[in-house]
Design a protein around this nucleic acid. Structure first.
Length: 423
RNA sequence: GCGGCUAUAGUUCAGUGGUUAGAGCGCCUGAUUGUGGUUCAGGAUGUCGAGGGUUCGAAUCCCUCUAGCCGCCCCA
């Protein structure tokens, strides 16, 4: 038998999951729009050449490539990857944005402030809180080199976390220029290796980082110099300016913050929870003044931030942070039963009357024993059941039962919504 | 990509070479032909992940594959 599991690293979202996701996405949209960011959507699929070379070597490996189709797919004579694949699923939302900006410069305002909440795909190995298809919630501001952009983006992301109920979190910032200088001053040639090792400082400590630097072929003297620089005077004008504009927020300079994506050029930032046992960032971003220029046109400055929806959801689930109306939501306010074949039309009519009174109404889909119908109502957690049986029809009334209290009322149709909304 | 662990009913798991593979939960039926959530009685459900091997005999031992989990790597 074929497996009924979704494909590796992919997930089905059952109704309860979707409600929680929509709740979080709703707040993210609302906050981004309150800062004047506009929505953008781009295709799931990009041309392979659009994505390749934008994320570093590791990133290139993780791009989800799509096999060529029809006559273009010539397996017998294929010798390179580009003979087999010409498209790929998008790896993040930033590179597609850069492509859109490069392609639509004349139609976009001088400063393009957009948000985008869509899934991205990575051919990664799935782990806890890590999937092959996951949503990112990006905000970016295109066209300005001003550090006001950084400040505002940090503010928006902080705002969202507060509104979702997070209390202990902080934004850590660093600067690619500062990192590059420290690496060069220490006499280290391979900047990527140095940064990857440095990024683990809070996890494995100074000794661990030194060890890893040496393992990556960097001399012990250089490694020590590098770490000394990180712990020494790390002042940077850009970072100081951002800090000054974010005085109301919890922002901290973290000289060990590196971030993997290769397209960042200036400020880099990450948002982390400082309470509980969730390690790792739940969002990050930075300035990428060179990326849009990689599409061969004008060089345009840009800066953005991405919140990881899945990680936010994992933590909110573990901590029970969803409001009761989301956590205990029901598909309908009331369920209408069907007494018999002969009364189907009456039940259909009743359901529609209740809908026109503003209620969410679910109809039991077939005549059945009342016990079965109640059991189903209980299972889907609707709070009220309407019974329209022979005796009710004879009186032109409906029995309404409150499933929580067990209370039952016989009343005309017109009074039902008052009972349900009042109860 | 590397290392370790796991795969048995819808689900969580027990079963370490010997009849017909079990349990909890869930599901179905009835007690209750106009009333759920509680209770009681009864019932159904399996390619024991796939393929091969050892054996008189394999869910159990061996090999291969596949999938999942944990750690490393990397990342949101």
């Amino acid at each position: 038998m074929a497996s009924t599991n979704p494909a590796r690293g992919m997930r089905d979202f059952l109704p309860a999951d979707v409600r929680k996701r929509n709740y979080v996405i709703g707040i993210i949209k609302q906050v981004y729009e309150s800062y004047g960011f506009e929505p953008l959507e781009t295709p799931s699929v990009e041309n392979l050449e659009t994505l390749m070379g934008k994320y570093g070597d590791e990133g290139n490996q993780l791009v989800f490539k799509i096999l060529k189709r029809g006559e273009k797919l010539d397996l017998a004579n294929a010798t390179t990857e580009s003979d087999l694949s010409d498209l790929a699923l998008r790896y993040d939302l930033t590179v597609p944005l850069a492509r859109v900006v490069a392609n639509n410069k004349n139609d976009l305002p001088k400063f393009f402030k957009r948000y985008q909440i869509q899934p991205v795909w990575r051919a990664d190995r799935p782990a806890r809180g890590r999937f092959r298809e996951f949503y990112q919630c990006d905000v970016d501001c295109i066209g300005s080199e001003s550090l006001v952009v950084e400040a505002e983006i940090i503010s928006a992301a902080s705002h969202i976390l507060s509104k979702l109920g997070f209390k202990d979190f902080e934004v850590r910032i660093n600067h690619r220029g500062l990192l590059g200088k420290m690496v060069a001053d220490a006499g280290i040639e391979n900047e990527t290796d140095a940064l990857v090792a440095l990024d683990k400082l809070d996890k494995i400590g100074a000794e661990g980082v030194t060890k890893e630097l040496v393992e990556r072929g960097i001399s012990e003297a250089s490694a020590d110099n590098f770490l000394a620089a990180v712990n020494g005077n790390t002042s940077n004008d850009d970072l100081d300016a951002v800090l000054a504009m974010c005085s109301e927020l919890r922002v901290k300079i973290d000289p060990s913050l590196a971030r993997g994506l290769s397209y960042y050029t200036g400020t880099i930032m990450e948002i982390v929870l400082t309470d509980g046992d969730f390690k790792g960032s739940i969002g990050g971003g930075g300035r990428y003044d060179g990326l849009i220029g990689m599409f061969g046109k004008e060089q345009i400055p840009a800066c953005g931030f991405s919140l990881g929806l899945e990680r936010i959801l994992v933590v909110m689930e573990e901590r029970g942070m969803f409001p009761p109306e989301i956590a205990e939501s029901t598909p309908a306010d009331v369920m209408v039963t069907i007494w018999s074949e002969e009364t189907i039309a009456d039940s259909l009519k009743l359901a529609n009357e209740l809908r026109s009174q503003g209620l969410r109404v679910t109809l039991y889909p077939e005549p059945d024993k009342l016990g079965k119908q109640f059991k189903y109502a209980d299972q889907i957690k609707v709070p009220f059941v309407c019974i329209l049986g022979e005796s009710e029809l004879a009186e032109n009334k409906v029995t309404v039962k409150n499933l929580k209290t067990g209370e039952q009322t016989l009343c005309p149709t017109s009074e039902i919504s008052a009972i349900i909304l009042g109860g």
